[in-house]
Design a protein around this nucleic acid. Structure first.
Lengths: 181, 181
DNA sequence: GCAGGCATGTAAAATGTTACATGATTCG
DNA sequence: CGAATCATGTAACATTTTACATGCCTGC
C-alpha cells in the first residue's frame, strides 16, 4: 500500500504554512524543496484542480494590477487531516537512489579506464557547488542553529550537507587513488 | 538534452557483460543494481523488443527442458557504441533525491513533535539493515579490496556504504538530540 | 515600448507501476 | 503432486517531462 502521489502531500504541506498560488508552488521547487523533490507547473495546475475537487484545498481569486487573476489556494480541514495522516503513517520503503553517474560507474570495469578521471572530476565540481549552496542556505535560514519553528527544515538541510560532504569526500579520495596509480 | 531512458543503458550495460534473458535482467534489479535503480519486468520486456527493433541487441532462442522457451539477448556492435557514448558524455544534472521520509520531515516544525522519534527510529532501522546488507555484499564480492575487473561496482558499493553510514549517523545523533530535550 | 518575470493553463509523449494472464520446470 | 521459481508477455493506470499556448505586469 505504498503511498504514491507524493506531490499531493507536498502541495498540502506547503499550503498548510501559507496561502499560495500555483506559481508560488512551482517556484518552491526551484529553491527549498528543489533540494529533494522536483515538479513542473504542468503537473501542479491540474493537481491543484483535482485537490480542490476532492475538497482538500480551496482558492480565492485576487486581482493584481488591472486584471491579472491569481488563484490563492489554502488548505481545508480535510486537507490538514490527510496531511497529518500521511506524516504519521510509516514510511517503510527505501526507494532506490537514482543517480545517473553512479549508474555509469557501474559499467566501468578497469581501474585504468581513461574515462574515470574526467567523470569523477565533473561530479566533484557539481557536488561541491551543491554543498556550497546548501551551506549558504543553512547560514541564511538558520544562522547555524536550529530554528525551533522549522526544525524539520533544519534537519533536512543538515542531512543534505552531511550527504554532500560525504559525496565530495568519496569523490576526492577516489580521484587521489587514481592519480597514485 | 538530458539523456532520458536510462533503463535502456542499464540493459545495454548488463548485456555488454553477459548474454541474458529478460528474466535475468529483471532479477538483476533485486540484487546488484537494485541498490541504485529499479524496474519491473513489465517495463523490461517491451523495451527489449524495442531495442532489438533498433538493432542495439539481438536474441537467440533456447529450449529449457521439453519446451520452455528462453530468449537470450546479446548486445550488437551498434549497441556497444551507444553504451560507450552514453558513458563518455557528461552527466551534468544532479537529479533531486526523492526520499519520502525527508519530505515528511520537512513538514514537521516543532522540536518536540511527538511523531519525530518514531519516524527517526523507523528510518534508522531501515538504513541500518541496508548498511548491513551492503557490507555483506562488499565482503562477498570484493573481500574488502577492489577487484581490478569490477572497479566501478567496487566504487559504487563503497559509495553506498559511505552514504548509509552517514545517514545512520545523522539519524542516531538526531535521535540522541531529541532525548536530551 | 520591450524584456523579463508573473500567472495559468492544455496536449502529447515518455516513463513507471500495478494488475492481469499464461504456462513450464524443478525440487522436495 | 504441489509449491516455488522460471519465463514471457499485455492492459490499464498513474506519474513525469516537454512542448505548446496565452496574456498581464513591472521596471528600465
Amino acid at each position: 500500500m505504498a503511498q504514491r502521489n507524493k506531490l499531493k502531500f507536498i502541495i498540502l504541506g506547503l499550503l498548510s504554512e501559507n496561502e499560495l498560488t500555483g506559481y508560488d508552488i512551482t517556484k518552491a521547487f526551484d529553491s527549498d524543496i528543489g533540494e529533494f523533490w522536483s515538479a513542473n507547473h504542468s503537473q501542479i495546475y491540474p493537481l491543484l484542480k483535482r485537490l480542490e475537487d476532492n475538497q482538500l484545498i480551496t482558492h480565492r481569486l485576487t486581482i493584481t494590477g488591472e486584471k491579472l487573476e491569481k488563484k490563492s489556494y489554502s488548505i481545508t480541514d480535510q486537507g490538514t487531516n490527510e496531511l497529518h495522516q500521511w506524516i504519521s503513517e510509516p514510511t517503510p520503503a527505501l526507494s532506490a537512489t537514482k543517480d545517473e553517474f553512479i549508474l555509469k560507474l557501474y559499467f566501468i570495469h578497469k581501474t585504468d579506464d581513461a574515462r574515470l578521471k574526467p567523470m569523477l572530476t565533473e561530479q566533484l565540481n557539481l557536488h561541491k557547488n551543491k554543498l556550497t549552496h546548501l551551506q549558504q542556505q543553512m547560514k541564511s535560514k538558520f544562522h547555524n542553529q536550529s530554528d525551533s519553528n522549522n526544525f524539520g527544515h533544519f534537519l533536512i538541510l543538515q542531512h543534505a550537507i552531511q550527504r554532500e560532504t560525504g559525496y565530495t569526500n568519496w569523490l576526492t579520495e577516489t580521484i587521489q587513488g587514481l592519480a597514485s596509480n
